[in-house]
Amino acid sequence: MLVHGAVYARGLRRYSTYRAATLAGVLTNSVFGAINAMVLLALFGARPEINGYDATDAVTQVFIGQALIGVTLIISGPSLDLSTRIRTGDVAMDLLRPVPLQSWWLAQDLGRATFAFAWRGLPTFAVGALLFDLAAPDAPLATVVSLLLVAVLGFALRYLYTLSGFWILDVRGLWTLMGFVGPVAAGMMLPLALFPAPVADVLRLLPWASLVQIPAEIYLGKDTLPGGSALGGLALQAGWATVLLGLGAWVTGRATRKVVVQGG
């Protein structure tokens, strides 16, 4: 456990060296969020309520989504260095440590996510609050727990995408596909409440929704959550985190037993 704490601290420190990139991220996410919010405001101008969402709910979710881009890295390209390390064979060095591969990278990525939340997520949300009328959190404590689970889930999904590199070697194609599917299924591009109800109900149960839609509904206090409460939403997120991390551990075992570490 101590070693994971130390790795977390190094992940945090490592990413804090990328200050200019972080500032650029805040700018991009705020501008995109503002455009997205204005489109939604025009839509809600024509219809004041859609599937239990009003204009404030929708705009709040847009900025929750934008604030979580840096934490989840749901859009950008191969974001764990691990994919490069698998392609070049440097992963050999990771496998030579007396720590399981997944927990090593989880600790490091949580360090990165912490930095991204504090310096990219919160400022983006603050810009949103400055420009628009955003809702206050319905359940602050549940929201914090939910955000922690978002960081774990964001890692678990990317770790699985990345591990496919042990078989397909270059994961950039997969990333391009998931970089499109992920944000839509997460409710990041558009709140899932605006989708036809049967589609939204299915998407809500998939792991991507637990990255934005579920935490947004917990923040907003919606009864569309599983079980109709914040607790149900947290249970769904925790369930997916357990399943995906379990799958990650299993695939890691298969990958390192069967597959070749590249390079001489």
């Binding site: 130390a6 050999a92 440590r97």
Partner: peptide, 28 residues
């Protein structure tokens, strides 16, 4: 202990000290 001459197990962006101090926890 293993060293692959063409690879590094050190943290690329951090001072060398950070990688070396981590080994205390890594190997207990």
């Amino acid at each position: 202990g293993v060293v692959f001459g063409q690879r590094t197990g050190l943290w690329w962006d951090l001072p060398l000290r950070d990688s070396l101090e981590l080994t205390r926890h890594l190997y207990r």
